[in-house]
Amino acid sequence: MIRAEGLGKQYGERWAVSDLDVEVGQGEIFGFLGPNGAGKTTTMRMLAGMIAPTTGRAWIGGVDLAEDANVVRSRIGLLTEAPGLYERMSAAANLEFHARLHGLPTAKRRERVRACLDMLGLWERRNDQVAGFSKGMKQKLAIARAVLHEPAAVFLDEPTSGLDPESARDVRAFILELRDAGRAIFLCTHNLDEARRLCDRIAVFRGRILRLGTPRELEREVVRHRLAVRMAGEPEQFVEVVRALPIVREAEIADGELIVVLEELDRDAPPVVRALVEAGAEVQRVAGLDSTLEAAYLAILNVESA
């Protein structure tokens, strides 16, 4: 549904985005993770047909951006970083305006405005001026605007940024509904927990894609598996015991616990515990330390910076 080949954007001497190859299918949520200034918004604007790429090509639903950006814009929905709503207009009037720009016929327009406001819990406030809305309500309305015309591809820039937990939960649930309805969703976010929960695949991005995979693949690929062992007495004397094991990649003391880095947690934990007990350690507690997407993300960025 969304496809890019060799997409790049140069500003002066600087390449904001280079060599972007990406493909997002129907019913897929594609996470685009990167630090501020990584070129995420530039990428999104290129794919949404709003700015022209310096190199490469992109297609939305098979339509080449270079051939007709207007057609592409009619097939995409875009949630910008700021909601960008007309504050002195009502919620319904905001949606009506955009529905007309997308050329929806009257009956369809009314049906979609109602459906979108309903889905996001804003129907009761449809005639209220947007200026009186909370940040969460504005964000929901902006999302409603982005999907009003039932676009094949939806680009969401930080959809839950600055929202309270309840609003963020509603927005996430709505994104999943969109996914289930077969939309291709391109999600730019800083929220790693959100990316892990929502995204089918994630690209860690800084000017170019540094890593691409499912959240689980990224966690596994980047963060080695760690085992935390708490024991009675001084754990330092057992560091060399575990280091002597071929399955142990690294061992150290942290916060009074022995932290052992293994290649595969489930497979390698029992021999480590056995060796410790045999060496006389009084093991009180053993726990696997979860590798997180956050750790993976930071590790990827650090490796690439080094």
């Binding site: 709003m50 057609v71 700021a82 960008g84 720009l101």
Partner: peptide, 14 residues
């Protein structure tokens, strides 16, 4: 200034 331009330009308006 009102940040409404980007959504407007993202619509199919020429």
């Amino acid at each position: 200034q009102l940040r409404t331009l980007e959504p407007l330009l993202a619509s199919p308006i020429r």
